[in-house]
Simulated assay, not measured.
Amino acid sequence: MNFDWLSRYLPLLLDGAIQTVSLLVISVSIGFVLAIGLAFARVSGGPIARNLARGYCTFLRGTPLLIQLWLLYYGVGSLLPMIPGIRQSFLWPILREGFFFAAVSFTLNYAAYEAEVLRGALLAVPKGELEAARAAGMGPLLLIRRIWLPRAIRIALPTIAGEVVMQLKATPLAFTVTVMDLYAVAYKVRQDTLLVYEPLLVVTVFYVFLTLLITRVFKGIEGQVPIRR
């Protein structure tokens, strides 16, 4: 094993790690908010909202993430420069980067999977608790904020932790749209040094460490959130 290259590529590895974590944080945080709306549309929305949410989740969960990413980057991304004035706008430095399309693709995909998780959790909340809250005079929004959503999230926490880890494992796909994430840096090291196993081992250690950290954080959250009977 030869790790002499490590000190030379350390700044690039750190930048790649930041890109990976940034993709994870953006997609999980924004995707979770979208998932809440989709889940409530599936559970308590009208026929149109319910069918639209179901179609969204079915499409995003039924197609490979890589294809979704390429459709956005090579499809939508190739059409954006044709929009008048887009190159001169302040958004162009963002829209021209592969990171933007990777973040959007990962976010939409994560929202679809998490919406199904939350839908099941919302349905698993005991109806007696919801009826008691309504009897106490809680309106729909207060009921969702104080009772229904917190209980559903508590029920779904173990599954949410697993989904976050799965999302972390999906981040190397960003390499295919020119994002210099950690895997892309490992690929560059392999090209420059002709070393195959060592860069991949470094990436593996990073992902294992982050997986353990995510697991520990969610276990801590589970321990802090009381279980209401």
Rank of each mutant, 00 (worst) to 15 (best):
A39E: 05
G223T: 09
F175W: 05
A115V: 03
S29D: 03
F209W: 10
N2K: 09
S7T: 15
P199T: 08
K188C: 04
I147A: 11
N2C: 09
T193H: 04
I144W: 11
G46M: 04
L34E: 02
E131P: 08
A112W: 09
Y197L: 15
N51R: 09
R42E: 03
S44N: 09
E131I: 01
N2D: 14
Q88F: 07
G31S: 03
G128Q: 10
F209N: 06
P47T: 09
S29Q: 02
V196D: 03
L91N: 15
T176L: 12
P172V: 01
R154V: 00
D4W: 09
G220N: 02
V28G: 07
L143V: 07
A152F: 09
Y207R: 07
K219L: 06
Y183W: 08
A103N: 04
F32A: 13
I214W: 02
P172C: 07
G62Q: 06
L122C: 11
A112E: 06
L173D: 02
F206G: 11
V179I: 02
F90M: 14
A184M: 00
F175Q: 06
R96S: 13
T215L: 14
L10I: 12
A133M: 00
G46W: 03
I94D: 00
V28D: 05
L24S: 08
R96N: 11
A121R: 13
G45D: 07
V104T: 03
V177Q: 01
S29P: 11
V179Y: 00
G46S: 03
Y183F: 06
R190I: 06
M82Q: 12
R50I: 10
F206V: 12
W5T: 05
L34S: 05
E222G: 10
G223V: 14
L108G: 04
L122N: 12
F206L: 11
P11D: 15
E163F: 02
I30D: 10
R54M: 05
R229N: 08
V189H: 13
A161G: 15
F3N: 05
A186K: 01
E198A: 15
A103E: 05
G75H: 11
K127W: 13
V203E: 02
T211F: 08
A39G: 04
R87Q: 15
Y183T: 00
I26W: 02
V189L: 09
I144N: 14
P64D: 11
A111H: 01
I153A: 07
L213G: 11
D15R: 08
A103V: 03
V117Y: 10
L91T: 15
